[in-house]
Every structure is written in C-alpha cells, then in structure tokens.
Simulated assay, not measured.
Amino acid sequence: MPDELVFYTNPRSRGRIVRWMLEEVGTPYRTEIVDYGPAMKGPDYLAINPMGKVPAVRHGDTVITECAAICAYLADAFPEAGLAPPPGRRGSYYRWLFFAAGPVESAVLNHALGFDPEDDKQAMVGYGNFGTVMDTLEKALAGGGYIAGESFTAADLYLGSQVNWGLQFGTMEERPGFADYVARLTARDAFRRANDLDNAAVATE
C-alpha cells in the first residue's frame, strides 16, 4: 500500500506520545513493536532511524522521526482531524509545540540528572534555567484552556505528555494549572485508547 501508515514503537518509550497522536488522527495504521537491544540497533531498524531510537512513522515513502516532528507531520497529513490551526494562525501552535520539544524537555531532563547550568553559563543553553522554564509554562497555562487557542491541538498533545510524565515521575514541579491541564487532556477518548493499547503491549512482553 503506497500510503500505508506504519508506527514503529516500544510501549516503554516516548512512542506513547505518537500512539496518542495516531489515535487522535483516527486513520488506520500498522504497529511494529521494536524491542530494545539488538533489534533497535540492528540494520533493519537503522534503515528506518539511523539513531536506533523509537518512535518513528513511515507514511508511504516518507519516514518521520522525533515526536514533535511526527505530531506536526500527522496534523498536516490528516487535516480532517483538526489537530492544527489553519496555516495563517499557527504562530502560537508552533511556539508552544517546539517550546515543549526544546526548553521543556531539555530543562526537565537536565534538572532530573542533576545538571543545572551556573549563572554565567545559562546563555549557552537554550532554556536558561529550570525555574524560568517552569515559570513560563505556569503563566502560559494560567488561563485554564488550551495552549494555542480555543481548541485542542497537537501542541497540547505533545506538551501535555511532557507535563503528565513530569508530574508522574516527580521531575516537574507541581505548579498551579499543571494538574488541571493534564486532567483535561488525559480525559480524551483517544488518550485512553492509546494508553490501553500500550499497556496491553507491555502486558504481553
């Protein structure tokens, strides 16, 4: 099938973000579970992603890696799902999608690993410091709606996944608005379907 949608993942990975996105899109897809170790680093999978990481998506002849890029691609490839604003109104959408992919993920991971840049080195990292990122995110979510307007978009899905994991694993501060934002997003039917599919895959390991 020239336009077949194939999802390469492992249920114990960031692939859960893309699974959610695929369930929101609602287009049929085929899942390929890639085990950690030799399979993920072997020649067959490296032909899909030379980094030897999941997730990845193949749509016909097009291969997309990196969760934020996959979410943005799927939102564009399947516009009927309504997961991206119209092209002329995507400023906030792009801003917060890539804020989540850059400053949020980097700041949270580095902080969890015990790396917080000294004051004189903060200009060298894209996010400055962990506190600034948390303050910025708290302010952005203070309105109680969605991150890029009045409707749920792929930016919410990606950012919400980051906040959800951060609160679950204690790598992100519990700030006003964070838990409410996550609760709104994870109440979505597509999130529940995706979570059930991945949990079932874990159970069969």
Score class of each variant (00 low, 15 high):
72 A>W: 09
39 A>M: 07
166 G>D: 05
143 G>H: 11
193 R>L: 09
193 R>N: 11
32 E>S: 03
138 E>T: 14
196 D>P: 00
136 T>F: 00
27 T>W: 01
148 A>T: 10
69 A>V: 05
102 G>P: 08
35 D>K: 13
59 H>S: 08
171 T>L: 06
15 G>C: 07
35 D>G: 10
79 P>L: 14
136 T>P: 02
150 E>P: 10
162 Q>F: 07
45 Y>A: 01
19 R>P: 00
39 A>D: 12
88 G>T: 14
85 P>I: 15
34 V>E: 02
41 K>C: 02
180 D>H: 03
128 G>L: 06
33 I>V: 12
13 S>D: 10
38 P>W: 11
145 G>I: 04
115 F>N: 10
33 I>L: 09
44 D>Q: 13
137 L>W: 05
29 Y>P: 07
129 N>W: 02
135 D>V: 03
134 M>W: 03
98 F>K: 02
86 P>Y: 12
48 I>Y: 03
186 T>H: 08
117 P>C: 09
121 K>I: 08
162 Q>D: 00
116 D>T: 15
67 C>I: 06
11 P>N: 05
100 A>G: 15
17 I>G: 08
176 P>D: 01
128 G>C: 04
197 L>I: 15
142 A>F: 04
42 G>R: 09
138 E>W: 01
51 M>K: 12
67 C>D: 15
122 Q>K: 10
72 A>Y: 10
183 A>E: 12
7 F>P: 11
136 T>G: 06
61 D>V: 02
108 V>I: 14
156 D>T: 04
144 G>W: 04
91 G>M: 13
69 A>L: 07
77 A>L: 14
92 S>E: 15
54 V>L: 03
4 E>C: 04
153 T>K: 00
149 G>C: 05
98 F>M: 11
9 T>R: 07
174 E>S: 09
2 P>C: 07
21 M>I: 06
168 Q>S: 08
31 T>A: 07
190 A>Q: 08
16 R>H: 08
92 S>A: 15
19 R>M: 14
115 F>M: 11
12 R>Y: 05
80 E>V: 14
41 K>Q: 13
72 A>T: 12
57 V>N: 09
